[in-house]
């Protein structure tokens, strides 16, 4: 009996770092922000006033939030096919047995993914600037370029950030897709070749079906990541011009830590969580059906 108690203490000691930190910085904040989302609370005035669903209702009447929601959707839908598609093509090219220096290529494509989004944003602010790479190249090719940054126009700012995001993110997925491709047994390809299947048939009948779990996984984590787009918006445009690049998380930051409307901010955070959960569930359903 004594030994068992001791064992329990030892177990508790080993788990305690997680137990303590998770309760303080995980569980408690998750529950507390749920409570806060039903109150009118500002960081400046410590009195919480219970307001029911007002914050949630407010969100869907708040023009800026709706714009942010729309922009985030555009961002997610507009980047993921390209990120995944490019990663898939490069992954398949890398999987070619005759290609030498695979590790080198893998690392090189991956390199942008280890660099912080702030640094990447800085590089692209520079390239998008009025005298930057894109305008210079455009003028050289004979296009009439507008003499301003691509990020300064409501029409081009969001697509410009999306284009950058595809560049910054695809290398990460190349690695995942490549790992998925490597797990497809070589014998399958050989058997197909013996049966006289061409490269196109091999790709559609063997590679893609067997890669499906990896692809769904890639799309799932990419969706979650893209819904939380913040750093590039904060660094490049601050949500502007005229909210044309406002996204949910950036708006949440502005509401909570610029205006200090923490109740409303918590409600937005929970709406975001809901959206992510619903989309993850839908993706899981689809995944289960297809595989």
């Amino acid at each position: 009996m004594k030994k068992k108690t001791k064992q329990r203490w030892v177990l508790f000691a080993f788990l305690s770092p997680w137990l303590i930190l998770f309760s303080i910085f995980g569980l408690y904040p998750i529950l507390f922000s749920f409570v806060v989302s039903f109150t009118k609370y500002s960081g400046l005035n410590p009195n919480m006033e219970f307001v029911g669903f007002e914050n949630y209702i407010k969100a869907f009447q708040d023009e800026v939030f709706l714009i942010a929601l729309k922009n985030t959707m555009i961002f997610v839908v507009g980047t993921i096919p390209f990120t995944t598609g490019i990663a898939l093509v490069i992954g398949i090219l890398l999987n070619n047995r005759r290609l030498k220096g695979k590790d080198f290529f893998k690392s090189a494509f991956f390199l942008p993914s280890v660099i912080s989004m702030v640094v990447i944003s800085m590089i692209w602010i520079y390239m998008y600037s009025s005298n930057g790479l894109f305008n210079t190249l455009g003028s050289l090719l004979g296009f009439k370029m507008e003499d301003r940054s691509w990020l300064a126009s409501t029409k081009t700012a969001l697509p410009a950030i999306m284009f950058m995001d595809v560049w910054a993110a695809f290398g990460y997925y190349v690695i995942l897709i490549f790992a998925g491709l490597q797990s497809i047994p070589e014998q399958l390809y050989e058997a197909a070749r013996i049966d006289g299947a061409g490269p196109f048939r091999i790709a559609t009948k063997i590679t893609l079906p067997l890669l499906k779990p990896t692809l769904f996984f890639v799309i799932a984590i990419n969706t979650i990541r893209s819904f939380q787009v913040f750093s590039e918006i904060y660094t490049m445009t601050g949500g502007g011009p005229r909210n044309s690049t406002q996204t949910i998380v950036h708006y949440l930051y502005e509401v909570s830590f610029r205006k200090f409307e923490m109740g409303y901010g918590s409600a937005i955070a929970y709406i975001l969580l809901m959206i992510i959960m619903v989309i993850t569930l839908i993706q899981k359903r689809v995944l289960r059906k297809e595989v």
């Binding site: 995980g26 507390f32 960081g43 949440l252 830590f257 969580l273």
Partner: peptide, 13 residues
């Protein structure tokens, strides 16, 4: 899977 935005307001407080 939980977005950090959920927890950051209470942690800040």
């Amino acid at each position: 899977m939980i977005p950090p935005q959920i927890t950051i307001i209470p942690i800040f407080m």
